[in-house]
């Protein structure tokens, strides 16, 4: 089954925004997500293929509605829950949505 990330050749995404952003991250939280990801991967908590699979099996509507590093955050949480590192719901804020 094709997954939503498999966009090669798909039509309708419009022109490329060719803005030449040279900064690796556009907000501090993006850098933190990257840092968490890199540190956990280095420790062997998960490997690259598992992580990619988690991003790429996101529901299409969620995938298309989120930014690049938001997907990384969501995939990190899903993967850590699946591996039992954190419990489902453990990240919920008191009285608030996750």
């Amino acid at each position: 089954m094709a997954r939503i990330n498999d966009v090669g050749g798909t039509q309708g995404f419009g022109p490329v925004d060719t803005t030449d952003d040279t900064e690796p991250f556009h907000a501090d939280w993006e850098a933190r997500v990257f840092g968490i990801w890199n540190a956990l991967r280095a420790q062997g908590v998960f490997n690259l293929d598992e992580f990619r699979d988690t991003v790429e099996s996101m529901p299409p509507t969620e995938y298309l509605a989120t930014s690049y590093y938001e997907r990384w955050y969501l995939a990190l949480v899903a993967l850590l829950e699946r591996k039992g590192v954190i419990a489902p719901g453990e990240l919920d804020e008191p009285g608030g949505a996750r």
Partner: peptide, 8 residues
């Protein structure tokens, strides 16, 4: 989608 600022 892919906008660095994100949808949220």
């Amino acid at each position: 989608s892919g906008d660095p600022a994100g949808g949220h």
